[in-house]
């Protein structure tokens, strides 16, 4: 079953084409890696899929709803973690989770136990009452991810979730992603780290707003006849203009 489908999705800002006619499909339960250099158009494309930005042209559905017509219905079914930390710094850890649980309509009785369960899984119970602004970046990112899947969405969009995070935390982060995937949540993730690309079921590589390659990491390596995803990326990104 396809949970994301796009057909020639395009976004222009004035004369600049940020996303140039991308078409792709994402299967339910997949971990889909969305790769590309800075400025390749990943964030813009993701914002369109999340209903934060209206496409200039093209069509698409996310969780069965039309991007152009029903962005608010899409929002009910997805979680989103933006590149820039976007939780409330002046709220405590549990207060942020409670807020977003409440907004997504998690029943009131369930919110409290769910917070405790989640924080226990994360090994984070001690920080339940910590003000978010006092957390180190790695923890902020984990909290941010937890908030984005707190309401058990069908799909979660992660925009460079491990940017600026140390290798140990990155590893823990990917464990969280696998957990979510095991529960049936489709994961759509952008990253710069090619080792992370290897963890994905399938990846797409964007160059100058276009999708230049889309396949499993294994197939991509054999197509390009190289050893690692790093080399695949270099071969494709070499031709980029918007770097």
């Amino acid at each position: 079953m396809k949970v994301i489908e796009t057909d020639k999705l395009t976004k222009k800002f004035g004369s600049f084409t940020a996303v140039d006619s991308i078409s792709m499909e994402v299967e339910k339960g997949e971990i889909f890696g969305f790769l590309g250099a800075n400025g390749a158009g990943k964030t813009t494309a993701m914002r369109m899929l999340c209903g934060l930005s209206t496409p200039t042209s093209g069509k698409g559905t996310v969780a069965g709803f039309d991007i152009n017509k029903n962005p608010e219905d899409i929002k009910k079914n997805i979680g989103y973690m933006s590149q820039k930390f976007a939780l409330y710094e002046d709220l405590k850890v549990w207060e942020n989770l409670r807020l977003f649980g409440g907004i997504y309509g998690v029943p009131q009785k369930e919110i409290e136990p769910r917070i405790d369960k989640l924080l226990t899984t994360l090994g984070f119970m001690d920080e339940k009452n910590t003000m978010v602004k006092a957390l180190p970046l790695g923890w902020k990112q984990k909290l941010s991810f937890s908030a984005s899947i707190f309401h058990e969405p069908k799909i979660v969009f992660l925009d460079e979730p491990t940017g600026g995070v140390d290798p140990a935390t990155r590893r823990q982060f990917w464990e969280l992603i696998y957990d979510a995937s095991d529960r049936g949540i489709t994961v759509f993730v952008t990253t710069h780290y090619m080792d992370e690309a290897e963890y994905c079921d399938r990846v797409s590589i964007m160059v100058d707003g276009k999708i230049e390659a889309l396949d499993s990491p294994k197939n991509l390596k054999s197509t390009f006849n190289v050893e690692s995803m790093d080399e695949v990326f270099f071969q494709l990104a070499r031709g980029a203009k918007n770097e």
Binding site: K75, S82, I103, A147
Partner: peptide, 13 residues
């Protein structure tokens, strides 16, 4: 300015 509106805008509120 703090970016928190983005996290709100992506909810069905």
């Amino acid at each position: 300015q703090s970016g928190t509106i983005e996290q709100i805008n992506v909810t069905p509120v």
